[in-house]
Design a protein around this nucleic acid. Structure first.
Length: 361
DNA sequence: AATATCCGCAACCGCTCCGAC
DNA sequence: CGTCGGAGCGGTTGCGGATAT
């Protein structure tokens, strides 16, 4: 049984809002504030769904909203944040004072995506389109949907941004001076809980335009250590933060060689608990930076830190992170696609039951 | 001038999250 | 611990204006 609708859709007005309706909702909220949105239309004398009222307020009527066009700085920040965390518009919007998630999303879909494509950059992976096509062309030997290897393929696609190089910022602004490279978010964070708390808004919010600088600009302008910055604002690093490991992390031995069987087994659709296959070991061997980045990606479908932080979901992401790390540090001459195919054959030999019921490819 | 197409934005839809009970 | 319902999120749709033919 599905959930009942929040209101009787047939009896509420839909579509564009009139100035009179706007005036009513503004008057009501200025007197009572925002509270229970389901009660707002009734109390404000509007024949609208409460949800519709909330959207109208948050996306258009809020007094702190900016209605002018996006600045180049905002544009740059959106691109960098999209590269780092994907289409999490609400999180991106929190870094852009006066902008809503809807604003950012629309701006991305109508302007930035096309702009990147014109520049030959894939707006999903933020990689040059030619590289994406060549990678996917190799992978396309797998069936696209409907079987388990298709899911592995999907995981690989999700992972692609973690390998993005050169970066969009470099395309836009030229190469970054290596000496002024920023430290990754993870290095600035005191704990993973801090990152989670950023995700949960309070510290993630950027209050003033003074603090608001895309990190590429920070790279170019910070003279020495970014850690000495007076601002406590966290800066999201892009997925390329893997290459921004601290010297200690770089010196540390990479995590034990990546185990493809664990990667495949960790696929949630495999219905096998990753912990049973030593994933915890993989997790514990990852550098904090890698784990932190994983956390951000993982939180896409698991925002709630309470629920299953070490569950299969994060285990899976940790594997992706591990894979990305391994690829970036691999000295093997093979492409990662070749490695996938090789290892896949091994997996198929070792775990024939995994492919029961699925056709060969 | 009329029509077709494109584009940007506001709004909606369906889903998940999360707190209250 | 499970259920319920409000709030929030991301994807999609549709309208209206701008531009091209």
């Amino acid at each position: 049984m599905g959930r009942p609708p929040c209101c009787d859709k047939s009896n509420v007005k839909r579509g564009l809002w009139t100035p009179e309706e706007d005036a009513k909702i503004l008057a009501y909220i200025s007197n009572h504030g925002t509270g229970n949105w389901t009660l707002v239309p009734k109390k404000a004398g509007l024949n609208r769904c409460g949800k519709s009222c909330r959207l109208r307020w948050t996306n258009y009527l809020r007094p702190d909203l900016k209605h002018e066009s996006f600045t180049p700085q905002e544009e740059e920040l959106i691109i960098n944040l999209h590269e780092a965390i994907g289409s999490r518009w609400s999180l991106i919007a929190k870094r852009l004072p006066g902008r809503t998630d809807n604003d950012v999303k629309n701006y991305w879909n109508t302007k930035l995506r096309k702009k990147l494509m014109k520049m030959g950059i894939d707006p999903v992976t933020h990689k040059p389109v030619s590289k994406v096509i060549s990678d996917l062309g190799c992978i396309s030997g797998f069936p696209s949907t409907g079987n388990k290897m298709g899911l592995v393929n999907k995981n690989l696609c999700n992972m692609l941004p973690t390998m993005a190089e050169p970066t969009v910022a470099q395309h836009l602004l030229g190469p970054v001076n290596a000496e002024t490279k920023i430290k990754p978010l993870a290095d600035q964070a005191q704990s993973q809980d801090q990152v989670r708390s950023w995700e949960h808004q309070e510290q993630f919010q950027v209050a003033s335009q003074d603090n608001f600088q895309p990190h590429v600009f920070n790279e170019a302008t910070s003279s020495s250590s970014s850690s000495s910055s007076s601002s406590n604002l966290p800066r999201l690093s892009s997925p390329r933060s893997f290459s921004y490991l601290t010297s200690e992390e770089q010196a540390a031995p990479p995590c034990s060689s990546f185990d493809w069987s664990e990667f495949l087994l960790s696929d949630p659709f495999m219905c096998i608990e990753p912990q049973q296959h030593g994933l915890q070991g993989v997790l514990s061997s990852l550098s904090p930076s890698v784990l932190m980045q994983s956390e951000i990606q993982c939180s896409k479908k698991n925002d709630n830190g309470k629920k299953g932080a070490a569950s299969e979901n994060c285990g899976n992401v940790a594997c992706k992170a591990s894979l990305g790390y391994q690829i970036n540090t691999s000295s093997s001459g093979n492409s990662f696609v070749d490695d996938i195919l090789d290892r896949d054959n091994e997996i198929r030999a070792a775990f024939p039951q995994l492919l029961d019921g699925y056709s060969d490819y």
